[in-house]
Design a protein around this nucleic acid. Structure first.
Length: 421
RNA sequence: GUGGGUAUAGCUCAGUCGGUAGAGCGCCGGAUUGUGGUUCCGGAUGUCGUGGGUUCAAUCCCCACUACCCACCCCA
């Protein structure tokens, strides 16, 4: 048997109904904030991610699907989409368009990690980028927008964490300071931290080993090291979130794994997700465009939602979210009735009803299937009905059955004929 | 890349102290000639993950492998 490759899954109905709802709501929110869709290729030159995401990051060093094209150029399946969006922004000179460019995307990303709960090798992200402004007002608006998506989806029990990781001026200074401090205490920490203390001191702050927590608490906080530019920027973001009544927690230990983040970073975590409890991550990336070779600056901020994880939380908390809907199930009896059913079904479908016509099997079989697929109504079309020029319409919820003419059919479906009030 | 767990029907699982397997749900048919949901009756489906070893005999014991799940790492 040929199976889907490791870490890549088939999404089947009725589960796909949840995915569609998530994507529909996201698009509605993006529309409300004047964000417009961008679709970039799934394959890019490997260089884009090496330079954009960071040559030393885990994503680039060990998680990318990279392969040689037939002309020997190195291509990579996108592990994330921000680098692509910035590439497109530069390539198509979107800086020449008026105002801040507000773009969103929905699509699959690829990282070759060991799969586990909430982590797949092909996973889906819903993300947005606001490019062309350094204003903290944009940061606040972007964060507000993600909260709006969660709210409209009815997701509860999530927590918004924010931080500022500084910029090219203050972050290197902070890292040095941290490295210094760690020299004296690292040997008392877990093995991973001892390694990180040398390779990537910021990640020490992220350590979850309980014994290390008191030590980490005593380490310097980035919040105390922000420079004259970053500090007021972060203060303004917090103020504007407070203005909007959006609850948040400042998490000074929040460090993101992609090199391009600077100043504002944020994350949304949710319980019931297992170890991978981060359902959204984002932040500002003011130097990214230049890193990718742009002559013009393109300061921006963006986020991406782990759609797989978001869908998981909704499936857990809203069991009826995965439900398919069918307005009418038509059961014709005989060749003439089948032909007639096709014509009537087309009419109703054009009026926006979902209609299914039974093509084989007897009436009883039709009723069973209609019941199992959850059809609201069944229309029976047999000899009696054909002769009378009327259809039998049965409300599957109440069991009530009435006779309607072809002209009355649509109205009967709309008004919920046969239902109890 | 590392660690732990699990592999038996479509799904969730039981089971055989070694004698080639069962339940619930689901699916199909019947009781019902033109009426579903409840009920009753009946049915189909498994190379018991793969390969090797021990044995008269292995789904069960031993070895190896593979797959899946969870966790670490890291991230969405």
């Amino acid at each position: 048997m040929i199976r889907a490759v490791k870490g890549m899954r088939d999404l089947l109905p009725p589960q796909t109904a949840v995915w569609n709802r998530v994507e529909r709501v996201a698009r509605e929110v993006f529309q409300a904030y004047n964000y417009h869709e961008i679709r970039t290729p799934i394959v890019e030159e490997t260089q884009l991610f090496a330079r954009g995401v960071g040559a030393e990051t885990d994503i680039v060093t060990k998680e990318m699907y990279t392969f040689a094209d037939r002309d020997e150029s190195s291509l990579t399946l996108r592990p994330e989409n921000t680098a692509s969006v910035i590439r497109a922004y530069i390539e198509h000179r979107l800086d020449q368009r008026p105002g801040v460019q507000k773009l969103y995307y929905i699509g699959p990303m690829f990282r070759r990690e060991r799969p586990q709960k909430g982590r797949y090798r092909q996973f889906y992200q819903i993300g947005a980028e606001a490019i062309g402004s350094e204003s903290p007002a944009i940061d606040a608006e972007v964060i507000e927008m993600v909260v709006e998506i969660f709210e409209r989806l009815g997701v509860r029990d999530y927590q918004l964490l924010i931080n500022s990781v500084g910029d090219h001026t203050c972050r290197p200074l902070f890292i040095e300071k941290l490295r210094e401090e760690l020299k004296s205490v690292a040997h008392t920490m877990c093995g991973d931290c001892q390694r990180r203390a040398v390779t990537n001191p910021l990640r020490v702050l992220d350590c979850k080993v309980p014994q290390d927590q008191p030590i980490i608490d005593a380490l310097p906080s980035i919040q105390d090291s922000l420079c004259e530019v970053c500090r007021p920027h972060f203060e303004a973001v917090k103020q504007m979130l407070t203005d909007r009544g959006i609850p948040f927690t400042v998490q000074p230990r929040l460090v993101r794994g992609l090199d391009y983040y600077m100043r504002t970073t944020f994350e949304v975590v949710h319980g019931n997700l297992g170890a991978q409890n981060s359902v959204l991550g984002g932040g500002r990336y003011d130097g990214l465009a230049e890193e990718l070779g742009s002559k013009v600056a393109a300061p921006g901020i963006g986020f991406s939602i782990g759609e797989d994880r978001l869908v998981m939380t909704i499936e857990d908390s809203q069991p009826d979210a995965a439900r398919t809907e069918l307005d009418l199930f038509v059961v014709p009896m005989g060749e003439a009735a089948l032909r007639h059913s096709g014509v009537v079904a087309r009419e109703l479908r054009r009026e926006g009803r979902s209609v299914e016509v039974l093509t084989e099997g007897k009436l009883k079989r039709g009723m069973e299937i209609a019941n199992k697929v959850g059809a609201r109504y069944v229309m029976i079309l047999g000899e009696d009905e054909m002769n009378a020029g009327q259809y039998s319409l049965k409300n599957m919820q109440t069991g009530e059955q009435i006779r309607v003419s072809r002209a009355e059919l649509l109205q009967a479906l709309s008004t919920g004929a046969g239902s109890r009030n």
